[in-house]
Simulated scan of single mutants.
Amino acid sequence: MADENDVLTNLDSNQPGTGPASGNGADNQPVAGIVSQYVKDLSVENPRAPESFQWRDQPELDVQFNIGAREINNELAEVELKVTATSKTAQGTAYIVDLSYCGLVTMRNMPDEQIHAFTYAEAPRILFPFARRVISDAVRDAGFAPMMLDPIDFNGLYIQQLQAKRAQEQSGGDMTPSGGNTPSGSDS
């Protein structure tokens, strides 16, 4: 059975890794998480209704996404997942859904590389299923069969974009942000 005095002595000891600055209430551990999530903007267009409900051609679907972020303060950022889904046939556009789905993300005691990776890879991965549900419901509410977007490998896209940026920098070119299917969009 341990002596209680040993426990108290160990809390106050000056041994490496056991002093007051290495725990014991100090807020020095990395923390990241979603504080809140919300629809910031949602637009649903059904420009050819009611004629579009009678079209029998297989629609051509185009889905574009972009990720943006802005710092709120030194521990809080807004991560924005923008998704545009368009359905077209030979007769015209059946519907267009534009969604801006956001999450407030807290990050503390993390190196810059981890903050960037969490902002542009992990946070969008967490937000995506909720954005996918909003789009599915919006398409259904517009009078069409719900559209379930395929899962997206945000981490793979993030790594791919970092590699492309490094290759561009090594070749001496200027990497300008591109729109559409980029994990960091114009805000990275």
Rank of each mutant, 00 (worst) to 15 (best):
L11W: 07
A26D: 07
G173V: 00
P20T: 01
R56K: 15
N28E: 06
R132C: 12
V105Q: 09
V35G: 04
C102G: 03
N66D: 12
G173R: 08
Q160V: 00
P47R: 05
A167H: 03
L149E: 12
E122S: 11
S188W: 14
L42P: 11
P129N: 15
N46E: 07
A131N: 10
D41C: 01
P177L: 07
N109M: 10
I34N: 06
D6K: 14
Q37G: 03
M110H: 11
M175G: 00
D98S: 07
L149G: 06
V83I: 15
E45D: 15
I67R: 02
G103P: 09
V83P: 09
V139R: 02
D62Y: 00
D98N: 14
E60L: 08
G68F: 03
M107W: 07
C102D: 03
M175N: 06
Y101E: 08
F144R: 08
N74I: 01
I159A: 03
D12K: 03
N24F: 03
F118R: 09
A26K: 07
I126W: 07
T182C: 11
N109L: 09
V44E: 11
M147F: 12
S178C: 01
P47K: 08
A77H: 13
L99I: 09
A142K: 02
N109Y: 08
A90D: 15
R166L: 09
L8I: 13
G103E: 11
P50T: 08
G33P: 13
E122H: 14
E71D: 15
S188N: 08
A32N: 10
R48G: 00
A77R: 15
P50K: 10
D57F: 02
G185T: 02
S87C: 01
T89R: 07
P183D: 12
F65W: 15
Q114R: 06
I152F: 12
T176P: 05
Q161V: 01
N66H: 02
R108V: 03
R48Q: 11
I126Q: 14
G172N: 05
L76P: 03
F65Q: 12
N46R: 13
T106H: 15
T86V: 14
I135E: 10
I72R: 13
G172R: 06
K88S: 11
A26F: 02
F118M: 07
G185M: 01
N155W: 01
A49L: 05
A164P: 00
F130G: 04
R166A: 12
G173Q: 13
G68Y: 02
K82A: 06
Y101A: 00
T176H: 13
D174H: 04
F53P: 06
D153H: 10
P50W: 09
P20K: 07
F53N: 06
P30A: 02
E80W: 00
P30H: 07
S178F: 01
G68T: 04
Q163P: 00
R133L: 11
L81S: 05
G92H: 01
Q91K: 12
P129I: 12
A123K: 10
A117P: 00
N28Q: 08
T84D: 07
T89Y: 01
R132S: 13
L127E: 05
D174C: 00
K165C: 00
I135Y: 09
P177W: 06
G173Y: 04
